[in-house]
Design a protein around this nucleic acid. Structure first.
Lengths: 358, 358
DNA sequence: TATTGGCACTCAGAGAGATGGAGTGCTAAG
DNA sequence: CTTAGCACTCCATCTCTCTGAGTGCCAATA
């Protein structure tokens, strides 16, 4: 069953209005729109039909209409008009994008904070591998008597480190030897290619520092097997700003908790399946606690076999168009950002008249 | 003006009851307590007096009494009885304490999550330096053409890393040279001791990789100047479980936001000034939005010139005794945890029959 | 046949009393 | 100094009513 143009127009208008007011939309409000040329009675007829089709809902008999999940879905897939960011908006997005250069993980969490702030909704970020991870470089640093810091660089410019305490004394030279062995025999291997025999071999040739070897390998395997980095969820409290949670702290808490759990335990669900952007509308969500909650997910590029995902979480009644536009802007520019190694666009001033050659 | 023993007993009882019920406490409820041997009328007289002293408050004429901030303060300073953790509680605390070994920062944030979970309240953690920071080790790793990873180890076993992208080509050997120069001339120096001349000297002797030097030094200075690590705040939503926020999402959001801001902008305020534990009761708080919010802060030990702080945030009506007990337990055991380099108490099973020598 | 104005009907939400009960302060007796 | 008794206060809850926004339907219209 196809929708008439007018029905589409009405559905779109209802979503648009409801999204910004959070109040059921009446026929009069639609009729009053400048580009609608029929009377409220006609609208009422059309609305009745749309309701029958399951695209609209009525909170109660004498209330206006509210989009149903199916209505939102149709809106997103077919009716949504590209939201054009205003000059002010791009300006503040640009300002926000001046990430302070930092460690990879911190950048990711900062991106989340940023997105959350700019959309005024909770947001999360995850980094995922696009292909099998391999170790790129090992480093062992003496941190104190019996304590060693292992620095591990993986493909995708991810750096992990771990403090290892050992009751065995090792010298700088021992560590250097072990590091060299690791760097020659353990780099550029995927998790599967790292076998027990290999470990044996390394342990044998590692000299006095060999007790370290199994610890290092364990950690390495653990890191290699991680398909994605931590999920950084921030700005949960912004959900409370939404009218649907005005006086339902209990419900909000439930949503928060489910969100937290879902994000860590059900990671694949928070990654867009296909295409750069994906929408999860209300009941399409995994957990039933999130049935009134929607998620907009967008991919962005981080160099070297890594891929980032930004997600924005909000009530099903959320401004999909605007949020998509903002996320799109982020996605476009974050890639560039990460490529540049997180250096702010205007290079930082250097002390004492040093010049930063470009 | 001194309180009589009975007055102390009454005040203590009121705090204890109010803390667990969140309802104003009436004279009858006190009189009904097993270890109270006078009638409700007597209690009423005493309560009137305590109210006049400013230790109790009355929400309205015909309501029971509620402790005033001053009342809480007195309770905390003099009346609070040590809460003894039950066997069940210590058991679950012990289970929780099995931190997965990880990077320092992640451990800190995990500790926060843990405390938040065990107290069912928002919690934060910060690591602070006890003395001037110095760099301990520099490492430069080629990550790709024109991109280098700088790994910096500071005193206190803190490891920082940064991805640097440079339009200048440098070889492995160049990096090794620069790293060597940095390691000889820049380690064990405090931020003040790193001068412009030193930078000049390093740049001159650094060979082809010298353009990197100012970037490295900038980053180093930045790290050295950080008196404390990031503040990890988690479990904000748990505040919503408290009856005071049952239907006041707006207020909760305000508290959240202020909390967030306060924690990052007003760091000294979140660190205990003296003694291992400190309480910030309601109006003693910095921001007026937090006037109904209290904080319990506790120090704990992390080796090597670093010191951790755990804070628990809750409504002024919170179970100070219980929370102090739990925090105390954490503080005691976390020190041990960190000393051991974050290795779980039962050493992890090693693959292929490898033995972990103790 | 599609659209429109008109009209009766519905129902959530706000406001106004009315009611009950928990708790107080005070007084007078023990 | 303590206690029982009593009048009083005031919040919380409930019910009731009223209002107005919005609908659905019908008959008139183009």
């Amino acid at each position: 069953m196809e929708l008439s143009d007018r029905q589409k127009q009405i559905l779109r208008a209802i979503v648009d209005i409801y999204v910004s007011t959070a109040e059921p939309v009446g026929s009069k409000a639609i009729a009053a729109l400048p580009d609608v040329s029929c009377s409220s009675a006609t609208i009422r007829n059309e609305m009745a039909e749309l309701t029958q089709m399951g695209l609209l809902e009525q909170p109660h008999t004498s209330a206006g209409r509210v989009p149903s999940p199916a209505g939102y879905r149709l809106y997103i897939d077919e009716l949504m008009q590209d939201y054009r960011l205003s000059l002010d908006e791009t300006k503040s997005l640009n300002e926000a994008l001046e990430l302070k250069s930092q460690e990879f993980d911190k950048m990711m969490s900062q991106v989340g904070k940023l997105v959350s702030k700019m959309t005024n909704l909770p947001a999360y970020t995850v980094a995922t591998r696009r292909n099998e991870a391999v170790a790129k470089h090992f480093d062992l640093i003496q941190a104190g008597p019996g304590s060693i810091i292992l620095v591990l660089m993986l493909s995708g410019d991810v750096v992990k480190n771990k403090l290892v305490k050992l009751p065995v004394r090792v010298t700088e030279a021992d560590l250097k030897l072990l590091a060299a062995v690791l760097n020659t025999s353990l780099t550029d291997l995927t998790a599967e290619e790292i076998t027990g025999e290999l470990l044996d071999k390394i342990t044998r040739s590692a000299g006095p520092a060999s007790p370290l070897a199994p610890l290092v390998m364990d950690f390495t395997l653990e890191c290699l097997r991680q398909q994605h980095g931590d999920v950084h969820l921030t700005g949960q409290m912004r959900l409370l700003g939404q009218p649907e949670y005005k006086d339902a702290a209990g419900k909000a808490q439930e949503v928060f908790e489910t969100l937290d759990e879902e994000l860590i335990s059900n990671l694949p669900a928070v990654l867009p399946k296909d295409g750069p952007v994906q929408f999860l509308v209300g009941p399409e969500n995994v957990a039933k606690e999130l049935k009134d909650t929607s998620v907009v997910m967008m991919r962005f590029d981080i160099g070297e076999g890594m891929q980032g995902t930004i997600g924005v979480v909000g009530p099903t009644r959320m401004d999909y168009a605007k949020i998509t536009a903002k996320l799109g802007y982020f996605a476009e520019n974050l890639g560039r950002m990460f490529q540049k190694g997180g250096q702010p666009t205007p290079p930082p001033a250097l002390p004492d008249g040093m010049k930063n050659e470009e």
